[in-house]
Simulated scan of single mutants.
Amino acid sequence: MSEPVRDVPITGEPIRLGQFLKLAGLAEDGSHAKDLLDAEEVTVNGELETRRGRQLSDGDVVAVGHERGRVTLVS
């Protein structure tokens, strides 16, 4: 069973996937984010994603294993 989706506030759109993985605590650092993407362990909105530079927008859900974070735009 998956963990509940955790809202991760960002102040500006868009944000790159690699940056979001670090911000959400789904990756320890940029190298770990790259490793997760290379190992095909990251999904965005339920679809496999391997591009660290993918642009995310408000409401996108990123998952690594059972952990999930939702991009939440705040002003």
Results as ranks from 00 to 15, higher is better:
residue 3 E to G: 09
residue 53 G to M: 13
residue 32 H to N: 11
residue 23 L to E: 10
residue 27 A to W: 00
residue 34 K to W: 02
residue 74 V to C: 08
residue 54 R to T: 06
residue 27 A to P: 02
residue 11 T to S: 15
residue 32 H to V: 13
residue 8 V to F: 01
residue 27 A to G: 14
residue 7 D to S: 12
residue 73 L to E: 02
residue 57 S to P: 00
residue 37 L to T: 02
residue 52 R to Y: 14
residue 43 T to M: 04
residue 33 A to E: 00
residue 67 E to Q: 12
residue 30 G to H: 13
residue 62 V to F: 00
residue 52 R to I: 10
residue 44 V to N: 09
residue 21 L to C: 03
residue 16 R to H: 11
residue 41 E to Y: 04
residue 25 G to T: 04
residue 24 A to K: 06
residue 67 E to K: 11
residue 43 T to I: 06
residue 43 T to P: 01
residue 30 G to T: 08
residue 11 T to M: 08
residue 68 R to M: 15
residue 32 H to R: 15
residue 66 H to N: 12
residue 43 T to F: 00
residue 64 V to P: 00
residue 10 I to G: 03
residue 7 D to N: 10
residue 30 G to A: 10
residue 46 G to W: 04
residue 72 T to C: 09
residue 33 A to T: 02
residue 17 L to I: 08
residue 61 V to T: 07
residue 75 S to N: 14
residue 42 V to C: 05
residue 63 A to N: 06
residue 35 D to T: 05
residue 38 D to G: 11
residue 20 F to M: 07
residue 72 T to K: 11
residue 33 A to M: 08
residue 36 L to E: 05
residue 8 V to P: 05
residue 67 E to F: 00
residue 32 H to M: 09
residue 64 V to K: 08
residue 58 D to N: 13
residue 48 L to F: 00
residue 37 L to G: 06
residue 59 G to V: 05
residue 18 G to Q: 12
residue 50 T to K: 14
residue 1 M to I: 10
residue 66 H to D: 15
residue 59 G to C: 03
residue 65 G to K: 13
residue 60 D to M: 10
residue 74 V to L: 13
residue 72 T to H: 02
residue 33 A to L: 09
residue 1 M to S: 10
residue 21 L to N: 07
residue 36 L to Y: 00
residue 62 V to Q: 05
residue 8 V to R: 12
residue 73 L to D: 09
residue 38 D to M: 13
residue 9 P to A: 14
residue 33 A to G: 05
residue 64 V to E: 01
residue 58 D to T: 00
residue 29 D to Q: 06
residue 52 R to M: 10
residue 12 G to K: 15
residue 41 E to W: 04
